[in-house]
């Protein structure tokens, strides 16, 4: 036994690591990847195709033509309508989240060009209070939809969310309705919505806009579902089988159109946008 003892209980690994920032990193299968190789592989592990969680900035770099992306509505911020307080005040949780993340909430919106074709874009930040959907996410989502309608272009949204933002209680629940209503308007305008599901997409986000894509793309190995695995295990009182609620599982059950590796994402998006006639 080693002279030091590692405290196992403090080490958490849910299989999906956030984007590594060191010189090298390890994939869940143990493979060591150097920073440069990782960047070249768009933050995926070449040995296992494991997709690391990445931020909006990286997605923008992967999808959009260089220098074409413009972020919008950066100043929309949460107002803590219910003055929610649990073990910590929501206001303080927000403060920490602002410090940790360079975004104003769990959704970044904007527009840009994908191989020359204009698209309205929204991308969730899992780092910001678990990518939870509150008023700001709902409002910015609506605005991204309205941008698509006004500019007659497709809407592309990347989800990464644990669900609704509990600290906004019923108001966050209503964001499921609000975002779906916005998509109803996009539908009426005859414009396409391409929904990309990254790890994880669960709860109120999966049960609203994320599952409403005209085309739904999942990243390999992402956790996608309504209830979280822990809640299901508590309900059924047994362990879930390996691979339950993964992208591959959803593809097999007919709930996503395709699984696309990050390296092929831009190419696939271009083909889809072309097919829609843009």
């Amino acid at each position: 036994m080693a002279w030091f003892k590692r405290s196992e209980k403090n080490i958490k690994n849910d299989g999906h690591r956030n984007m590594p920032d060191g010189l090298w990193t390890k994939a869940p299968n143990g493979n060591v990847i150097y920073k440069k190789e990782l960047e070249e592989n768009l933050y995926t592990d070449p040995s296992s195709d494991h997709h690391f969680r990445i931020s909006v900035k990286e997605y923008v770099g992967i999808i959009f033509d260089e220098g074409t992306f413009k972020e919008t509505h950066k100043k929309v911020r949460s107002a803590d309508p219910l003055e929610f307080e649990d073990t910590k005040a929501y206001k303080d949780r927000l403060k920490v989240a602002y410090e940790k993340s360079d975004s104003s909430d769990a959704l970044t919106t904007g527009y840009g060009k994908i191989n020359g074709k204009k698209a309205s874009f929204a991308c969730m930040n899992f780092d910001f209070i678990g990518g939870s959907m509150g008023s700001v996410v709902g409002e910015k989502f609506v605005r991204a939809t309205q941008y698509a309608i006004k500019n007659k272009c497709p809407l592309i949204v990347i989800s990464a969310s644990g669900g609704a933002r509990m600290q906004e209680a019923v108001i966050s629940l209503m964001q499921m309705a609000k975002t779906s209503v916005a998509l109803a308007q996009l539908d009426d305008a005859g414009l396409p919505f391409i929904s990309i599901l990254s790890d994880p997409t669960t709860g109120g986000v999966s049960a609203s806009f994320a599952m409403l894509g005209d085309v739904i793309i999942a990243e390999p190995g992402a956790l996608i579902g309504f209830a979280g695995p822990r809640v299901i295990e508590q309900t059924i009182k047994r362990k879930l089988p390996e691979g339950f609620q993964t992208s591959e599982f959803l593809l097999e059950h007919g709930f996503v159109d395709m699984i696309v590796h990050r390296k092929q994402l831009k190419e696939e998006l271009t083909k889809i946008i072309d097919w829609f006639g843009f």
């Binding site: 509505h73 100043k75 929309v76 911020r77 949460s78 107002a79 309508p81 509150g134 008023s135 700001v136 709902g138 409002e139 609506v142 906004e168 108001i171 209503m174 964001q175 309705a177 609000k178 209503v181 916005a182 109803a184 308007q185």
Partner: peptide
Amino acid sequence: RHEKFLNMGVWEE
């Protein structure tokens, strides 16, 4: 109906 639900939410700007 759309207006009703699109108006739901509280934020600052």
